[in-house]
Amino acid sequence: MLKTFVANGELPGSITVKEYDGRYFPASIPDIASQWKLMQSFEADSNDVIICSYPKSGFHWIWEVVTMLFNNTSNISKELPAKYILEFGAVSKVQQSPPPRVLGSHLYYEELPVSIRQKKCRLINVIRDPRAVAVSSFHFFTKIKEAKLKGTWSGYLNLFLDGKVMFNDWFHHAQLWESVRQSNSDNPIHVLYYEDAKKNPFYEFKRLARFLQLDVKESTIMAIAEKTKFSEMKAPKEAAIGHNFGNAFAGNKYPLYRKGQEDDWKSYFTLQQNAEFEQIYKERMQYNKVQLKSIVNPGNNDTGCVEDTRYGSKL
């Protein structure tokens, strides 16, 4: 069922999603009920790896890294990572592929195919600063034709904070995954922080290889870190992708890459918006073990937000 959400108060903003069982999906996905049923029938292999993240948290990037680690190469894949997202119809495409398969999902743990949970497949939980997620998703969803995203950045931020966007609330997603990590000690789950991987990719990719029990030379990991830099990966990857998935997007082109920066959010958040966001984060995440240092204890040089208040405020 299509549902359109409107930002609160006088903030201009609205977005259209497709609701199924309380979850919000891109409006362009056809027959979600059938796809959901097909996804649940997926027969996982114990060697499969699933990258689990909220949208716009770095799935495509980490998929490339994990694929390279498995193949013991620094060559960029010609595949489109989105093809391997379970809820987007990946099941029919990869069921016959030989394991280990590198898959992805933006769903909650309990929503993953039963076989993935039963076989205790390795899961990689990617977490990114929600301010960066909000800005990245604002630009991405603007390009989805059927999302009909209208209004300003401030209107979208209001919708994001209320969880009235595709794949629902970021905070709820983070809290549920932390609960899973605490209550499923027998299911191997690796937490990867997007910002940490940006700052020190060699170290984080080495940790990934260790978690995946892969014997990859440090020289290869170093090459992977270099080849998966945004500036290195953007052109060849876009050339390989071409116009796949383009029909659903403005300009008939899949908008996979924009900037790939960890602090681009500072160009959009006003100082007031950032202060409000930090307060909301501290209130909603106060009982979580996972605490993003850039929010709960920012350094003196960490707040580089735009000075003016042309976008207004949520509160």
Results as ranks from 00 to 15, higher is better:
His139Thr: 01
Leu11Tyr: 01
Asp21Cys: 12
Phe59Thr: 12
Ala250Thr: 14
Trp36Phe: 12
Ser185Ala: 11
Leu103Cys: 11
Asn158Ile: 02
Ile189Val: 09
Asp196Phe: 02
Ser53Thr: 14
Asn125Gly: 08
Lys198His: 12
Phe211Thr: 09
Lys198Ser: 13
Gly13Met: 01
Arg117Tyr: 00
Asn47Met: 09
Ser14Arg: 12
Asn184Ser: 10
Phe59Glu: 03
Ser77Phe: 01
Glu87Trp: 05
Lys199Phe: 13
Ser136Glu: 11
Phe277Gln: 00
Pro236Thr: 04
Gln175Ser: 12
Ala147Val: 01
Ala27His: 05
Asn187Val: 11
Gln95Glu: 07
Ile224His: 06
Pro99Asn: 06
Gln175Val: 12
Gln213Asn: 13
Leu256Trp: 01
Ser74Tyr: 11
Gln279Asn: 05
Pro12Cys: 00
Asn247Gln: 15
Ile62Met: 08
Met1Glu: 15
Ser77Ile: 07
Asp45Lys: 07
Leu214Gln: 05
Phe138Tyr: 03
Gly163Phe: 08
Ile127Gln: 09
Asp308Leu: 14
His106Gln: 04
Ser53Cys: 07
Asn300Trp: 14
Asp215Asn: 06
Ala240Arg: 02
Glu218Cys: 12
Ser183Gln: 12
Glu19Gly: 02
Asp21Val: 11
Phe140Val: 04
Gln286Phe: 14
Ile124Tyr: 07
His190Gly: 05
Lys145Ser: 10
Arg23Asn: 13
Lys199Met: 13
Ala240Trp: 03
Glu283Lys: 03
Phe42Cys: 05
Pro236Asn: 07
Ser185Gln: 11
Lys164Asp: 06
Leu192Ile: 06
Arg101Phe: 04
Gly151Gln: 01
Ala250Phe: 11
Tyr84Trp: 14
Arg128Ser: 05
Lys143Gly: 03
Asn244Tyr: 15
Ser115Lys: 02
Val306Met: 08
Pro55Asn: 07
Ala82Gln: 05
Met285Gln: 00
Gln96Thr: 14
Lys93Gln: 12
Leu103Ile: 01
Asp302Phe: 10
Leu208Thr: 03
Phe245Tyr: 04
Phe202Gln: 13
Ser294Trp: 10
